[in-house]
């Protein structure tokens, strides 16, 4: 990374707020897609957006500026992990949350496939047989 870029990405200019802000932004985009979009696939994509927003939020909670990934593969990392590595707990949480998110998305898409087979459309306003 060049020196200019390094200053630009320093905590003085881009603090953790930008990560918090963008995770909330992702969350809101997803919510908008779920509430407004009529296409079932777009709704599922909105769901994934929300999950990504929360995952980004969790990761940025544990991030400490200038520290590395909590993989203890170097001697100095093994000796003093707290000094060189970021908080590993949120990363473990996000790993789990990503797997769960994949399962939910797969489940949702398989239901969408069934719906498309039965009704021949992906437009949610044409499918509503049951009362909401």
């Amino acid at each position: 990374m060049s020196e200019a870029l390094r200053t630009f990405f320093s905590p003085q200019i881009l603090g953790p707020e930008i990560f918090y802000g963008s995770s909330v932004g992702l969350f809101l985009i997803g919510l908008y897609m779920i509430l407004v979009k009529k296409n079932l696939v777009k709704i599922v994509i909105g769901l994934s957006f929300i999950e990504s927003g929360v995952n980004l939020f969790l990761i940025s909670l544990g991030y400490v500026w200038g520290k590395t990934a909590p993989i203890l593969n170097k001697p100095e990392l093994m000796k003093e992990p707290v000094k060189y590595a970021v908080d590993p707990v949120p990363q473990a949480l996000v790993l789990t949350a990503i797997v769960i998110g994949v399962a939910v998305t797969a489940m949702a898409l398989s239901i969408v496939i069934v719906l498309h087979d039965k009704y021949g459309t992906l437009d949610i306003s044409k499918i509503k047989e049951l009362k909401w």
Partner: peptide
Amino acid sequence: GHSAEAGFKYLLLGS
């Protein structure tokens, strides 16, 4: 169709 629709509703709210 019915159960897929109910399932999708539940999935959306639940997740």
